[in-house]
Design a protein around this nucleic acid. Structure first.
Lengths: 345, 345
DNA sequence: TAGTTTTGTGTTAACGTACACATTTTTTTC
DNA sequence: GAAAAAAATGTGTACGTTAACACAAAACTA
């Protein structure tokens, strides 16, 4: 079945009775075309519904694009290791293209390391930068500099609150509500439930706060007979001092952990010999283990790998094929339990 | 912007001290190359890590590929309408390429209409066919003919059990287990729970049976104090005779509906004035409404749009860029409740 | 040894786009 | 109305891959 091929500038040129050079000048609005020719070309263009062939175009535009990537170090926090995978997957997929990737990491507990690496990257004048804006102030600053220097950029995971250009992530407020809904399925009122923020340093605060807001709003709006408490703990405190929390609040029935350290809460509870409801975030190895042995009931999957892949992909599609960069892409909030977890890994 | 470009056939030729023609003959194993030249080229190939530029290749291989698509008619069953979207999305994305798509539908309740359309498609000798193999026997037959005629094909949603070539779908057995796990979270033993197969005609039987098997296995393996009953009902029976089921089985606490007609069960229960747990499949409009007003607790998302998109995408990637066609791609089993549903639509 | 086939090799023309450059046509200037 | 300037248009080449083609050298025939 040899159907019609797509129309090319040659077809347009023939129909309009001009040369391909003239058609090209019309297409790229570079002037030097008489009004008469312009009209004829435009008519032909409309009649044949021309769409440029992106393949030929990118073959011709034979430039090496440099893309830099700046994400938190997976060695410091295993949450980021799927991002690495996503990035590498894309890099392999596009290995045959003239793209020059460089991958940098920063310490997720040290804003300074973010800024330092950011500046180093700016010096290299890349075509595009993908980064995780963990720290609000520092990220806004970087974003501004990128904008000034006309460097394309996309963020993922944590949004930059001031100047959002392009972002891939999740609706964190809604994510908190999802957690709340699951809690309300599992424990019945009246009772106390807790929001627990576990983090070495209380950075990434906005991120966790959004989740808490969503969580609380669910109960305030439609389930007032739950009492919601909030605890902000360091990782060490969870492991060593959790008995105090339980002694002081014996009526706590469920725990909503806003970070990937959910397993620490689950393990502490297990260590204390109590069986409570625990809901948290992310498919870390430790979390999955707790999920499977019943110490965690649900996890919310933030799909870091997909976030990294998709955000990088949109940059690549833009550079290579001139596809439009989407402003904000919100990924689904996946609910994970002991059964469907297998289908996610 | 000025880093090393990827190595081309020309670089290989220069390093090996031969012409690009010779290199090409080596790459495509078309003979007419002396042993000496072959060795030199192979060495150069290894040294420079050559990967062919897929863009230049597909520009050169300027053929119109015809791809036919055969899916159930969304007018007969709205479950299929996201598939349409997925297909159209891909078609737009690849509009600029020389691909000739044609979209055909069949009546999901009439195996004959599947076979008829299938034969019509075979007559056109397409390069590739994407189809939903709803009917086991008929699909196997079509699959065989496709194989004989060397027509590329991919299936999605329902697997062909005999000759699986390439398939995108979900693990239906696991899907049933997920439903069971959710049921066990919401209703406490001892009690009765029901598997309900709702379908006009009992086609697609294997599909539903797999889900039931998974569901039952969960309880048999680890939760023996639930009693599982199975009902196979026509849509009309659900609407008119559901009171009989409830009268005969007053201890039924939860319902696991294996098809997208979950809302019919939920609405019947609501009509009878009883509040029970209902878990089912798919993000139909009606199902979402029931989810939001509490008549359905959970839905399992089969991601028909993604299935259609990804399966078609793998065909396109193969034809256009010679990417390998994956044998089986299993998508995650998404759990949907009244909150996270917003993030999926 | 001349004539024929086989085998190895390099050259070249596409594919569709984009842009520099050459060439033609039109307009301006004196 | 001829020369110069400006504007409009056409031509050629490159991007990397592929395959048909041309041509030479070697290997066979008779």
């Amino acid at each position: 079945m040899r159907m019609k091929k797509n129309t090319t500038i040659k077809d347009i040129a023939k129909l309009a009775g001009v040369s391909i050079g003239t058609v090209d000048r019309v297409l790229h609005k570079r002037g030097r075309v008489s009004e008469k020719a312009l009209n004829k070309v435009n008519e032909a263009l409309k009649e044949l519904q021309y769409t440029p062939n992106p393949i030929a175009r990118s073959l011709r535009n034979n430039v090496v694009h440099t893309i830099q990537i700046l994400i938190p170090d997976p060695k410091k926090d295993p949450y980021w290791s799927p991002c690495m995978e996503g990035v590498h997957e894309l890099m392999e997929e596009f290995a045959a293209f003239d793209l020059d990737f460089s991958l940098h990491t920063y310490d997720p507990s040290k804003p300074r390391s973010f800024t330092t690496m950011g500046n180093k990257i700016l010096d290299q004048e890349p075509d595009a930068l993908l980064f995780v804006p963990l720290f609000g102030r520092e990220s806004t600053l970087l974003q501004q500099k990128l904008f000034e220097r006309n460097i394309l950029s996309t963020t993922f995971n944590s949004p930059v609150w001031d100047h959002v250009h392009h972002h891939v992530g999740q609706d964190l407020f809604l994510s908190g509500k999802v957690g709340a809904k699951l809690v309300s399925d599992l424990v019945k009122p009246p009772c106390q439930v807790a929001v627990i923020h576990v983090e070495e340093t209380f950075n990434n605060a906005a991120h966790m706060q959004e989740k808490e807001n969503g969580f609380r709003s669910f109960f305030e709006e439609s389930h007032p007979d739950y009492e919601v408490l909030t605890f902000t703990l360091k990782s060490l405190e969870v492991r060593n001092n959790f008995d105090r929390v339980m002694r002081e609040h014996p009526k706590l029935e469920a725990f909503f952990v806003t970070t990937s350290r959910t397993y620490e809460v689950a393990e502490s509870l297990h260590g204390l010999g109590v069986t409570k409801t625990v809901i948290g975030y992310d498919l870390l190895h430790e979390n999955i283990k707790c999920l499977e042995n019943g110490q965690i009931q649900f996890l919310i999957h933030q799909a870091p790998k997909q976030q990294a892949y998709l955000s990088l992909r949109s940059l690549v599609d833009n550079l290579l094929f001139n596809k439009e960069l989407p402003q904000i892409k919100l990924l689904p909030i996946d609910i994970i339990n002991a059964e469907n977890v297998k289908s996610y890994i």
